[in-house]
Design a protein around this nucleic acid. Structure first.
Lengths: 348, 348
DNA sequence: TTGAAAGCGGTACCAA
DNA sequence: TTGGTACCGCTTTCAA
């Protein structure tokens, strides 16, 4: 059904090799032949069989990406960034979701390796690095995004999570908050980094908070908004009640927002809220949400570029690179306290 | 670097064919051999080269999907649905975005065909059916989703868009609105269907509205919220002003919401708003948004199943199937007018 | 400038 | 139960 080099060769009374050379702009072909071949290719709508080509070249011109959740706006943005860069180089994007399940992730990695993708981009839910060893064994280069592993030097692209925590917390402090709580994520690296940044910002301003001001959201990113609500309820029950909260991510922050409003309190006056992710509808929420932009799209683009450069390097041992992007604060109403409040607090 | 059948065969002093048969559970292999082979496969972490297999079987076990925008929640949901079904059958998902650009879409289709995906799922931005003819020529089965073409019988999975329009408009009417406007989408089929449903609902209730009550949003789905705002401003300038608006999709509706609030009016009291898509944060908006759920996830799942069934059919001419899913209304605050209002209006 | 032959890693068919 | 051989569509190498 599909047209093959052979068909074109036969039609034109030339060899397959000749046609193949024209296809790849491989010199040493007379103008005449080249044009006849191109013409026929166009007529027959010829498209080279990439599977066949992959078999002989060892390159599929496909990059695999595995994310925990396709619907999470962060990963959608990443995918868009990846796709944008890969398209330009006519690489394909094979995508799959681990559904936040480490075991599933391992299966998906195996699938990708079987498919012989040229490189792999992974936002891992893994606790151990064992599956990456297997990727390395196959000689497939890979780039981690968003989540990294301590004590493992691998290619990584992500936002500087400690800066995220510092930025958000610092902003809350500047807004006049003094009793700042944190709803943290589960044990993955971004959660730890943001927590660390939060602590650092508090320390720098000589603020201390009760241990109970740090509460854990659930692990399931998907239900972030529900777990954020639960966590915020706990915080509101404390005495003294926090006057500001930095949430691990935007879904969590939305949940927190809900809990605060449900309790009959005002945002930002009673409790200011900052999140992270700057999902594109943050501005449209019940109270427009201050958020730290983690440059999702850019993460995808940089990851794609890094992956491609590894492919070009053809397994020549490149030492792992780390790309840390600078987060940016986007201030909105959820932290917009009146100046006077800020001043009063600062006097104290 | 990667392990091949040949390596295993050599190690075990059997032929490649034998190993291949074990791999595929192809009978006629003694227990002993089979187990030795399996053991060695595990030891070496063998993974069949799918490119090689594809070359001889003619099947890549990959499905291609092309959507206008990876970040649009609707398409993310669709992708998730697809992925879920395909994973179970160990099919891979090759994804790409047409960025709402018909020309780009044609390129991406070509890429997919070159990659020899077993089937294609497309949410097309195309105006003509020409590119699908080319897909047919190659013998690659395909399923259209969301957007269809009149006068072309192809496999299609989507929501019943006329029902969408009827549901939303009918709901606004029941909520007491009498001057219902519509912000429509560009000329693609869902836009037309929803418009038609809107008209039908008005007619059924013997309502007429000025022609100016139907305004067009822009084509760019991405900026839906901005174009929704612009469109709503125009509507608010009319006299008499609409008391309800059905928006083509949720981003548009959010824009409309913004415009109404900016104008100092109240939702739903002055103007009620209904959208479509039921994106997962609809409930968290400034005014929780009534929306028609278009079953995005399910669309993906059904499209995947349909695509797989076409692949199984191996090009046996199956007559095109159309899967129309029933939309569901999710009523929220943006249309929750008090009963009294509704009654007053009905008296008039 | 052109093409013959070998081979990429598998599978299919048929004979041993 | 096992394996030899041909071949999938293309690229690579080298000779003509």
């Amino acid at each position: 059904m599909a047209v093959r080099l052979k068909d074109i060769a036969r039609d034109l009374n030339v060899s397959v090799v000749t046609v193949s050379k024209v296809l790849r702009n491989h010199g040493d072909i007379s103008r005449g032949t080249r044009e006849r071949v191109l013409k026929r290719m166009k007529e027959l709508n010829y498209r080279p069989n990439l599977a066949a080509r992959a078999l002989v070249t060892g390159r599929t011109r496909a990059i695999g990406v595995i994310v925990p959740d396709l619907v999470h706006p962060f990963f959608s943005e990443v995918a868009k960034g990846l796709s944008r860069v890969l398209r330009k180089k006519s690489y394909g994007l094979v995508i799959s979701s681990s559904e936040e399940d480490p075991e599933l992730e391992r299966d998906e990695i195996d699938q990708m390796l079987a498919r012989r993708v040229d490189a792999l981009v992974i936002a891992s839910t893994q606790w151990s690095v064992e599956s990456f060893r297997r990727v390395e064994e196959q000689g497939t280069p890979y780039v981690l995004i968003d989540r990294r592993f301590t004590g493992m030097s691998a290619n990584f692209v992500g936002v500087d999570d400690e800066r995220v925590g510092e930025l958000a917390t610092g902003h809350l402090i500047e807004a006049g908050c003094r009793r700042i709580a944190h709803i943290r994520g589960s044990g993955i690296s971004p959660a730890l980094g943001r927590l660390e940044g939060y602590r650092r910002a508090l320390a720098r301003h000589h603020l201390t908070v009760p241990a109970a001001y740090i509460v854990a959201g659930e692990s399931a990113d998907d239900a972030g908004h529900l777990s954020g609500r639960r966590a915020m309820r706990k915080l509101l029950a404390l005495n003294p009640r926090p006057d500001g909260v930095f949430c691990f991510n935007d879904p969590t922050a939305m949940g927190a927002l809900e809990a605060i409003l449900e309790a009959g309190l005002r945002v930002p006056h009673d409790v200011a809220v900052a999140g992270c992710g700057n999902v594109h509808y943050s501005a449209l929420l019940r109270v427009p949400l201050t958020s730290v932009d983690q440059q999702s799209r850019l993460i995808g683009e940089r990851a794609a570029k890094l992956a491609l450069s590894l492919v070009e390097a053809k397994g020549a041992p490149t030492r792992p690179r780390t790309v840390l992007l600078e987060p940016r604060l986007v201030a909105r109403e959820s932290t917009a306290r009146g100046k006077e409040t800020a001043n009063v607090c600062q006097l104290k």
